[in-house]
């Protein structure tokens, strides 16, 4: 029992620390890549190649004055950032970063838990993430925040459906809800090949859930200042940002696990393969951000309900047919 608790605690610190470090440098990578794609150097003043920029940003945010608006609903205003951050971190618990490794004579898995409802857990936890945004918008008592919060909750409710339906294809092919079993089911061919439409639907819906370009209407700066976190400053603002970037990592981890074969790959160790695939997905999302302009609100809703949702239902219907033809069943 004690040994179990110690191992879990160590794993918790290692995974959390590694994710925080990766996240910090993804912010820099995003700015650098966006810079190069727009033919400008990006941040390059703090440290060599701007490598100390994320640390400088962190210190800056930490030292800023923390403002709570006079009319804000105080308790909710304070817990909203936490409610945005906690679900993001909770998702990390079931992402399988690598198979068991032997450390000091003990078999230790490089993930927190392999629960047998892994996908459902992720889906349930990520469905709670919207609370942080809704409550932040509501409690700020500011019209920009409220509109941002409303837009965001409508968007997340709309795209969550397609996201869940896209996953059904993967569950059907792997016959399991456990993340580790899904990786094992991809021994022959990665699910991105047989589930290509599911993959496209999932990643589109996931980008919408993350409120990233081209679906970043909740924080459309030209009309809503900054959307739901307009009134937030200092560390509370930083917590929203942390949540957003940890979510980027966990979504990339989920895509890697469900569609790209997880940790499997030749020559290199499994953990390295997982990181390579994860960072490739992160790069893809940054690339999308640099490429597409923002949707209009009615386009966003039409696309979600009239294109993505029917497409995901069609994917559910076609997957068994496909499985029958290619002998999966």
């Amino acid at each position: 029992m004690t040994e179990f608790i110690i191992i879990m605690l160590v794993k918790m610190f290692v995974i959390f620390g590694a994710v925080m470090l990766t996240m910090t440098y993804i912010t820099l990578a995003e700015r650098k890549i966006l810079g190069y794609m727009q033919i400008r150097p990006g941040p390059n003043r703090v440290g060599p190649w701007g490598l100390l920029q994320p640390i400088a940003d962190g210190i800056k945010l930490f030292l800023k004055e923390d403002i709570i608006p006079d009319k804000a609903s105080k308790v909710v205003f304070v817990i909203a950032p936490a409610m945005a951050l906690i679900p993001a971190v909770m998702t990390l618990a079931v992402i399988p970063f690598g198979p068991a490794v032997t450390i000091m004579g003990r078999q230790v898995d490089v993930y927190m838990a392999d629960v047998n409802i892994g996908i459902l857990y992720i889906f349930a936890v990520s469905s709670i993430g919207v609370y942080g945004i809704v409550l932040a918008g509501w409690s700020s008592e500011s019209k920009y925040s409220l509109l941002g919060g409303l837009r965001s909750s409508a968007q997340m409710i709309s795209y969550e459906l397609s996201m869940g339906f896209a996953l059904v294809g993967v569950i059907m092919m792997s016959q399991s809800l456990s993340m580790v079993k899904i990786i094992e089911a991809q021994k022959g061919v990665w699910f991105i090949v047989p589930q290509f439409f599911g993959f496209i639907i999932y990643i589109t819906a996931a980008i919408a859930e993350l409120n990233r370009t081209p679906f970043d209407l909740p924080e459309g700066e030209s009309e809503l200042v900054a959307g739901y976190f307009t009134e937030y400053s200092s560390m509370k603002y930083a917590m929203f940002m942390l949540g957003e970037y940890i979510n980027i990592i966990s979504v990339s981890g989920i895509v890697t696990t469900l569609y790209l074969g997880g940790w499997s790959g030749p020559i290199l160790p499994p953990l390295a393969w997982f990181m390579i695939k994860l960072l490739a997905v992160v790069f893809f999302m940054i690339w999308v951000r640099a490429t597409y302009p923002r949707f209009r609100y009615d386009q966003l809703m039409t696309f979600g309900w009239k294109v993505l949702l029917p497409a995901s239902i069609a994917n559910i219907l076609l997957t068994p047919v496909f499985m029958k033809i290619f002998g999966y069943l």
Partner: peptide, 24 residues
């Protein structure tokens, strides 16, 4: 555990979000 996940997914994740949405 399936019921637990469904409980959070359906009630906390969908129905209560819509409630909050309407209240707002």
């Amino acid at each position: 555990e399936f019921l637990a996940a469904a409980q959070i997914l359906v009630y906390a994740g969908a129905i209560m979000v819509l409630f909050l949405f309407v209240i707002m």
